[in-house]
């Protein structure tokens, strides 16, 4: 799985490498800017897509987030992680997008729902049972509120601390924790309802890792 991440360019930059690229991009180095996009685009898109569940909107949000980040590189303080900043911008853009939706009809990406777009390698490696449980977890993630979903994704996918999540979502740390904990509670309930035997969970964890 990790090897696959690296192949798809999802390997995370170290703090130091990120800092260097940001300072070169600030000086106008196009190649560094390109590397920053390459290093973050898949994770940023996955995050935006999970929040919006619409490919086109998520892609627009990603593009806009990069352009905004680059246009204000001058005001970006190197104390922060560029990646955290990028997710902050993307999250706000997602919220704007959701607000805009209220006034018009929109479509979710049912065609791209996890259960109907399985990865070939996953299909081979995991049992039907594990797949069913994974689907259940993702369905439960979709049921979470936007803030809970964002908190869960940033925590597990981006390895952000509760403080960093609070910063990215623009909420107090206690609220960020409460979103994360409530989200866990709901995911647990939803999965526990399907699990009859602890060995199923063991199989699921093995399939996931």
């Amino acid at each position: 799985m990790f090897a696959r991440q690296a192949e798809s360019g999802e390997a995370k930059l170290t703090r130091r490498a990120e800092k260097k690229l940001v300072s070169q991009a600030r000086e106008g180095c196009e190649e560094s800017a390109r590397l920053l996009v390459e290093a973050h685009k898949d994770r940023l898109f996955a995050f935006s897509w999970r929040i919006l569940r619409n490919h086109h909107e998520a892609e627009e949000v990603c593009q806009d987030a990069f352009l905004r980040a680059f246009s204000s590189l001058d005001s970006f303080s190197s104390e922060y992680r560029f990646s955290t900043w990028l997710f902050t911008i993307a999250y706000r853009l997602c919220l704007n997008q959701i607000r805009r939706r209220k006034s018009k009809t929109y479509e979710l990406d049912y065609a791209a729902m996890p259960s109907s777009e399985p990865d070939v390698s996953d299909q081979v490696a995991e049992s039907e049972e594990a797949r069913r449980l994974k689907d259940q977890i993702w369905a439960a993630v979709d049921e979470l509120s936007v803030q809970q979903r964002a908190a869960v994704l940033l925590f597990y996918r981006e390895d952000m601390s509760c403080e960093a999540i609070a910063g990215a979502l623009g909420i107090p740390v206690a609220t960020a924790k409460s979103h994360l904990h409530r989200a866990r509670g709901r995911l647990r309930e939803s999965l526990a309802a399907m699990v009859k035997d602890p060995s199923q969970i063991q199989a699921l964890r093995e399939a996931a890792s």
Partner: peptide, 23 residues
């Protein structure tokens, strides 16, 4: 184990659609 399994799946299971290569 259930809580940890949820975390594992969210962390590692990548089934989102992919961006176009031209992005």
């Amino acid at each position: 184990a259930i809580l940890e399994a949820c975390g594992d799946v969210i962390r590692l299971d990548r089934r989102e659609p992919k961006l176009a290569a031209s992005f």
